[in-house]
């Protein structure tokens, strides 16, 4: 589903001394089927943006369009429920939302709320527990007896079981160890491709944005500060540093290398081995090898 924001502003507690503009005149379009990373430091408006994606918040001004759904200011949206079925949100530390007695019941909770048939739910639970990499032996266990990483996967399965066409991820790897982080991101990427999802990833990890996204939105002070393809965005190191963001380490390194050796290097997301080879050629005076 295509997502578009048209001049969206959001104000918390308007007309009070606590008034706070979280989003200001935000406009962008996310084409259906893309994997978009939203980056920005804490307080830049990322999480307010995220909550507009399934109608948890409605814009104070402007309009949000998600597929055929429209969310506007001051308008009760009767289709809110079906919008929420279409847009699955994996919140930060999603394991905190688990509450049922068994893993099965917790995964089934979303689909049940949306009125999915019993047989279909059984099917979905089986499928999603598998796609988050857990065994179906776990279904009858209490989610609270599982390890932290497993609990998170159960919570994610609960979102996937709604079979959304848009998947919104808020810092999904927070608190995991390096392997856990990589496995988690690979899993989402797999799902994104297999189920042709539109994926929105809110992240602090520039590494992940570079590795998985095909488009990046940079937020600062509630406004869209920059947007573009990851390589395009991350090559503007100074502009990013200005708003308190880093660039991925490999790009940082290339910049330093280029300065030191007075040369230029292309980075196009090539594997590290290829990159090492280019580096070696440069050092040997790459221009002779051609």
């Amino acid at each position: 589903m295509q997502i578009s924001f048209k001049n969206v502003s959001y104000i918390y507690q308007p007309k009070t001394p606590f008034e706070y503009k979280a989003l200001q005149d935000l406009s962008f379009t996310i084409p259906s089927g893309s994997f978009v990373a939203v980056i920005g430091h804490t307080g830049s408006g990322k999480s307010t943006l995220l909550q507009h994606l399934n109608g948890l918040l409605a814009p104070t001004h402007g309009e949000v369009e998600i597929g055929d759904y429209k969310i506007q200011a001051d308008e009760k949206n009767k289709q809110l429920k079906s919008l929420r079925e279409q847009v699955g949100v994996v919140f930060q530390y999603p394991e905190h939302q688990l509450f049922e007695e068994t893993v099965y019941k917790d995964i089934a909770f979303g689909p049940t709320n949306f009125g999915v048939e019993k047989d279909e739910i059984d099917d979905r639970v089986e499928r999603t527990i598998d796609s988050v990499g857990l065994s179906s032996d776990m279904l009858e266990r209490s989610p609270f007896d599982l390890s932290g990483g497993q609990m998170r996967r159960v919570a994610i399965a609960g979102v996937l079981a709604m079979e959304p066409s848009v998947l919104v991820l808020d810092e999904p790897t927070a608190g995991l160890d390096p392997r856990g982080q990589r496995e988690m991101m690979d899993m989402f990427y797999q799902l994104h491709r297999d189920q042709q999802l539109t994926t929105v990833l809110v992240t602090h990890s520039m590494e992940d944005a570079l590795a998985y996204a095909d488009y990046v939105l940079v937020m600062d002070q509630g406004q869209l500060y920059m947007e573009g393809e990851p390589l395009e965005v991350f090559h503007q190191k100074e502009a990013l540093n200005d708003v308190g963001l880093d660039v991925p380490e490999i790009i940082e390194f290339i910049t330093k290398f280029e300065q030191k050796f007075d040369t230029s290097m292309q980075y196009t997301n090539q594997p590290l081995s290829q990159f090492a080879e280019q580096l070696k050629n440069k050092l040997k005076g790459g221009h002779h090898d051609e």
Partner: peptide, 11 residues
């Protein structure tokens, strides 16, 4: 936070 997460799951 939790009420928003559950609202997203259709509550």
């Amino acid at each position: 936070k939790i009420s928003k997460a559950q609202a997203s799951r259709g509550v």
